[in-house]
Write a protein that binds this DNA or RNA. Structure first.
Length: 1031
DNA sequence: TACTAGTCAATAGT
DNA sequence: ACTATTGACTAGTA
């Protein structure tokens, strides 16, 4: 609080202290008394190095609090050196309860908490918990004794605040200490508050540990249950922190704490005991929960310790870094942030494309981006935008749905131009397309925005054109790649469509090779290669065509390829002209196509076309235009629509079979185009597209699927599900929809991946064009649809994928899987090639390579995909490629030695976490100070807080909880997890699910809150504000 | 300029 | 071999 100087000074001191070893930093808390005590103590400490640290910490904390952070208020950081008695003092501060125990702290704490907390019941539980663990604690406490501090609110009654004690012990201690935390956790569990804490914890992630401890500390305020509130409140509270302030803060904090779960929360904040990490876990002993708790506790402990260590490295260093982290994992949920979405796509495209694609495309410089942009644009719309990129794009896609597809298209478009990069993108898109198709049907989604025009179809056409133009430049291939993801579709197509398509595909391949992009590589079969190249063309064509499903992919592909090989473009153009359907078929879309299968024939043609190159050469411009005309079909690109569709269909679609989707898509597209504009894509375009579409439609119609899908989609469409709902389908329906039940979708995807033993990495690359880590994050911590922006694209893609017939999915994925490995390398190469200028070309090549390895199978599928479905395989490949492309460039550039990734030391992490608990948004000054103390760069510290903020919060909660605590919604779902969490604070934390858990907790909190509020309430308001953002 | 959102990619953990 | 975590980028916004 005080001046920075103080902090700094303190820091310096702290450092010294650290060296010394133990230091306690106690941050005041709610209880004035305690505060006073603590202060005195702390001061004393300060005198010593320890104090300084404490001071710093406090100051930091306080500042943070002031910032508005949460609970921090009461946080007491106690850094113990081993020897320091200061700690004891600290205890004194807390005295009543804590004091107790000096050592026993843990138990006492827990007890205290319980006691303090009005909630007898909870307490009881806690006690139980405690008993088991607490006991341990006690033992551990021993070490703790000194360490801990706590604060309990002396006054307990009145305030109950929480105090956070940060006890930094040396390793030994910590370990022991940890136990206590656990106990605390347990306590928390009991108390609703815990939940709150948990939530916090989660957010903090590793920090959680500390939190737990804190929780343990006691607090009573049950009151504010809602985590958020608490946090916010805390934040306010924290302000108080300066010594004097601190005391105040304590009170305040406590209040906040109370609010939340009171005790728990506060506790968390209050005491941060850094214990040895390890122990915690042990202590927890309990099953999962325990683990979580442990983690949390560990984390917490660590936090403190880290600080100490950090500052003083000496003692603390010990804790395992990870331990804490692990704990967090649970918190992961909190973490959730990960999800983010689309960006990648856009990025992807960009990256990939960036080669040119887009550039060409113009709009987006990066083609991919374009796509993304599109996606972004609308939010949902963004997607549309993408599409538009193509021309249409704009309009586009209006919606999300489009987005995915659109994106592809976009990519395409731009891609065409330059786009190789896009290719990668495309692939994804392609896949999207498929889905979209699914979605599209649903037009629902699309309809709206996309509207633009036409349906997606029209638009798509434009896109194509654009794309074509674009594509040419860049090797859209990338796009193609993208498509690959869809590969599935191809397969499907294959199945569906049958031979013909495949043939086509093959042929196309041949062509492709000729064209070359990659060819080289794959030649032979290169199915992939061929695919790539061809695909491109095809895609373009496809795009137009398939609007329904395929389109997307195809489009993408075409773009890429086109871009890459002009030839292809020609083909594409041709293809396009030929008919969208066929084209589509050629494209990955196949799946979609499948329906089209009819298209198969077309597909063939497609391929031919591609070969024909007519398109290609013409280059973009001419060709494109021409294409456009024909493309109209392409226009269908609808891809955009697809997205929409995707949303709808969900799984159900899948069942249907690829074809269905496609058909549906087509229909949808058509419909959309006509009807809505829904599609994103839309609109557009036009006539051509329409015409094509009609054809397609007819084809599609052939398949029953469409209907089915449509139905599905429609039914689902819904927006969804909001909440939970889930099911994918519904949500899905919406591709655009607004709402896709991300949670359900994530679950479904996870289930599907497991079912088929599809590695995340493969799915991520092929279908989503995202990294494995990103996918993992999204699946684990999906953000609520409402909170997603560009990230929706990624979910849409997933949605679409689900919608696709299983065959397609599988084939695509598998293909991808096989290919991927290979591809990569290749991709790299190819990427370079960038024949057409862009990486795209390279991409194509890559694909080829890819194909080569897998080719065999791939080819088949690829072909299929290529043709109709091809998309899938092709798409996959493409996608892969695309992605790679992105990379490739990098690679070239890469040369640079990468910086090794920074890994925080335990102390650093713990300290940061501990601070984060208190203050989510430390001022720059604070950050700088922290950085100094920890020996980190300010930017690193800034990143930490940024990431912590984003990852700590429960994504879901926010929405739900914000206003009220209710949030129950999600909770229910979450409940399960939550319950656990409740049981153990730690657990809660651990459970990444946390969000849920948190919610639950929150709910509990609410209940508790009733009584509480107290000061907290006021504070809450304040704090909440600050935090509010956070939340 | 500061933030956020979305990711990537390295690394940790199973 | 996979998945999960996480520090750091980048793009888009306000």
């Amino acid at each position: 609080m005080e001046s920075i100087n103080e902090i700094i000074d303190s820091q310096t001191f702290s450092q010294e202290l650290v060296d010394e070893a133990n230091e306690f930093i106690t941050v005041g808390h709610q209880n004035q008394q305690q505060e006073a005590d603590s202060e005195s103590e702390s001061h004393s400490l300060h005198g010593v190095s320890g104090e300084a640290l404490a001071m710093t910490m406090q100051s930091i904390i306080s500042s943070a609090d002031r910032a508005g952070e949460e609970e921090p208020s009461s946080v007491v950081m106690v850094i113990d050196e081993i020897g320091h008695r200061s700690v004891q003092t600290a205890y004194q501060i807390m005295p009543q309860q804590l004091q107790i125990q000096g050592r026993n702290l843990p138990l006492p704490l827990s007890l205290l908490h319980h006691q303090h907390q009005d909630q007898g019941q909870h307490q009881q539980r806690q006690e139980r918990m405690i008993d088991s663990s607490p006991v341990d604690f006690v033992g551990s406490d021993i070490s703790l004794d000194g360490l801990t501090v706590n604060t309990v609110l002396s006054q307990g009654l009145s305030v109950k605040q929480e105090h956070k004690l940060l006890i930094v012990r040396r390793d030994h201690d910590f370990s022991q200490v940890r136990n206590p935390p656990q106990a605390s956790k347990r306590h928390n569990m009991d108390v609703d508050v815990s939940s709150v804490d948990v939530g916090l914890m989660d957010e903090l992630s590793s920090d959680g540990l500390a939190c737990e401890e804190e929780e343990v500390t006691l607090n009573q305020h049950h009151q504010h249950q809602q985590l958020l509130e608490q946090q916010h409140q805390y934040g306010h509270l924290t302000h108080h922190q300066t010594h004097g302030q601190v005391h105040h803060s304590l009170h305040h904090r406590s209040a906040p704490m109370g609010l939340g779960h009171n005790g728990s929360v506060h506790r968390e904040v209050l005491s941060v005991i850094v214990q040895s990490h390890e122990d915690d876990k042990d202590v927890d002993g309990d099953a999962e929960e325990d683990d979580d708790d442990d983690r949390d506790s560990g984390g917490r402990d660590q936090l403190l310790s880290p600080v100490l260590e950090h500052s003083s490295y000496q003692t603390l260093t010990s804790v395992n870094d990870r331990l804490s982290p692990p704990g967090f994992s649970p918190t992961s949920y909190a973490t959730l942030t990960p999800i983010q979405p689309l960006p990648p796509i856009s990025t992807m495209s960009e990256k990939f494309a960036y080669s040119g694609h887009i550039s060409g495309g113009g709009s987006g410089g990066v083609g991919g981006n374009g796509a993304e942009g599109t996606t972004n644009s609308s939010g949902d719309a963004g997607e549309t935008a993408t599409v538009s990129s193509g021309n249409i794009s704009g309009s586009g896609c209006s919606n999300n749905d489009c987005s995915s597809f659109s994106s592809l298209p976009m990519a395409m478009g731009s891609g065409h131009l330059g786009l190789s990069g896009l290719s990668g993108v495309q692939s994804p898109y392609s896949s999207y397309d498929k889905l979209p198709s699914m979605i599209s049907p649903p037009p629902h989604n699309y309809s709206g925005s996309p509207s633009h025009g036409l349906t997606g179809m029209v638009v798509s056409c434009d896109l194509h054109t654009h794309s074509s133009s674009v594509s040419v430049p860049s090797p859209v291939t990338g796009g193609c790649v993208t498509l690959s993801p869809h590969s599935n579709s191809p397969q499907l197509q294959i199945g569906v469509r049958a031979n013909g398509q495949k043939r086509d595909v093959l042929t196309t391949h041949g062509h492709n090779h000729g064209h070359g992009h990659d060819h080289g590589q794959s030649h032979g079969h290169g199915h992939n290669h061929g695919l790539q190249l061809i695909p491109v063309t095809l895609q373009k064509q496809v795009i137009c065509l398939s609007p329904s499903g395929v389109l997307g992919d195809s489009v993408v592909v075409s773009d890429y390829e086109s871009s890459y090989s002009g030839h292809h473009h020609d083909h594409e153009l041709i293809m396009a002209t030929s008919s969208s359907t066929s084209s589509t078929a050629g494209l990955q879309h196949s799946p979609t196509l499948s329906p089209h299968s009819a298209s198969a024939g077309s597909v063939v043609s497609m391929s031919l076309h591609s070969p024909t190159s007519v398109v290609a050469m013409p280059n973009i411009n001419g060709s494109i235009q021409s294409l456009s005309a024909e493309m109209p079909v392409v226009a269908s690109l609808t891809p955009t629509p697809p997205p929409v569709t995707c949303a709808e269909s969900d799984e159900g679609a899948a069942g249907m079979g690829m074809s269905d989707d496609p058909s549906q898509r087509h229909q949808h597209f058509l419909q959309k185009s006509q009807d809505i504009s829904g599609d994103q894509c839309s609109p557009h375009s036009n006539p051509h597209s329409q015409a094509n579409t009609s054809h397609q439609q007819t084809q599609s119609h052939q398949n029953g699927y469409q209907n089915v899908q449509q139905q599905l989609s429609k039914s689902h469409s819904p927006k969804s599900n909001p909440g939970t709902s889930g099911g994918g389908s519904r949500t899905s329906s919406a591709s655009d929809m607004e709402e896709i039940n991300t949670k359900e979708l994530a679950q479904r995807i996870s289930a599907e991946l497991k079912r088929y033993s599809i590695p995340q990495a493969i799915f991520a690359q092929r279908v989503l064009c995202r990294s494995q880590g990103t996918l993992s994050d999204l699946l684990r911590n999906p953000k609520p649809w409402s909170k997603l922006k560009s990230g929706r694209e990624t979910f849409r893609r997933m949605f679409k994928w689900l919608q696709e017939p299983e065959f397609q999915r599988m084939s695509a994925l598998r293909m991808a899987a096989a290919q991927i490995p290979q591809r990569t390398p290749i991709s790299v190469q190819t990427g370079v090639s960038g024949t057409s200028g862009l990486p795209a070309a390279a991409a194509s090549t890559i694909t080829a390579t890819d194909s080569s390895p897998t080719m065999p199978t791939m080819t088949g599928s690829a072909l299929l995909s290529g043709s109709s479905t091809a998309p899938s395989s092709g798409g996959a490949v493409a996608s892969t490629v695309n992605c790679r492309r992105k990379e490739e460039p990098q690679i070239e550039q890469m040369p640079q030695p990468k910086k090794p990734r920074l890994v925080f030391t335990d102390l650093q992490r713990r300290t940061l976490q501990a601070i984060f608990k208190e203050t989510k948004r430390p001022s720059k000054e604070m950050q700088v100070t922290i950085a100094r103390q920890l020996g980190l760069e300010p930017t690193t510290v800034g990143n930490f807080f940024m990431n912590a903020r984003r990852r700590s919060m429960d994504k879901w909660r926010d929405d739900d909880t914000k206003n009220a605590m209710h949030s129950m919604q999600s909770r229910q779902q979450q409940q399960a997890s939550n319950n656990l969490s409740h049981a153990n604070y730690a657990n809660i934390h651990t459970t990444a699910m946390s969000p849920i858990g948190a919610f639950d907790d929150e709910a509990d909190m609410e209940l508790e809150l009733e009584s509480h509020d107290f000061d907290l309430v006021d504070e809450h308001g304040d704090n909440s504000d600050g935090q509010g953002d956070m939340l």
